[in-house]
Amino acid sequence: MSAPLLTAEEIVVRFGGVVALDGVDFTADARAITGLVGPNGAGKTTLFGILSGLLRPRAGRVSFDGTDITRASPQRRSRLGIARTFQRLELFGEMTVREHLVVAHRVRMRRDRSLLRDLVGLGSRPTLDEDETIAGILELVGLDAVAEQPVILLPLGTGRIVEIARALATAPRIVLLDEPTSGLDVHETEQVASALRAARDDRGVAFVVVEHDVELVLELCEAITVLDFGRVIARGTPSEIRASTDVQTAYLGTRAAEDVAP
């Protein structure tokens, strides 16, 4: 088996007195869907901050495809092929759905570097390649119908899908999804799940999914890491995780009990 695509080792993050991550190791393989689960406040979002470069760790290393990126900026990581979505939506409030993809695509194609052309009015024309790429992504995630809508008029669930589409428009090798299905209905959840599988199969994109819907994670992911209070308490395949007693007590246990109760 080849080396993992994205690796974090012994990550430590503190916020004032709170130790949000305490020596966390994490890996994600290329072309795979990796799950990251844990109760509220476990440190999942913080780990995404470290992987995407928005936060710097106190200690530890992050590497991508064999190169050390611990000190790389978010911009550089995006260029290398790491994209992400946000738990609390971070959409570009004044843009339409299509514009989200356009800006991501153009930055990727370095079309944001020609100020003079922009000033004389030649900087807003789409290219053929751009139109095709964007149409492809819109179709993949099922946003064609709302492409020209301003995002702030869209429901929360659709907003989450727009974030996924924006991430895909940067031509990433791995996408970090922070609770992509919270606020989505059953139908939309199914749509997201199939879009992820399609993106992985057709484009070879890897995903890391933070999710509270445990059944979905067990069904979707090849490998799962479980965090609790800033530490990794388990890691393995879905069946191994299902069997782990640690995980059951820390996390799944309560859920399972709730499920059984009624």
């Binding site: 995407s52 790491i82 514009e99 930055v107 922009d118 940067t170």
Partner: peptide
Amino acid sequence: LVVVNLRRSTTGLVLTAMRSSEQAAATTGI
């Protein structure tokens, strides 16, 4: 006209993105 061109161009889109969310802009490569 130059200002309007700027606003409608790729640079304008990039600035609009940055105004809405610096985090999302940064992780999109801006």
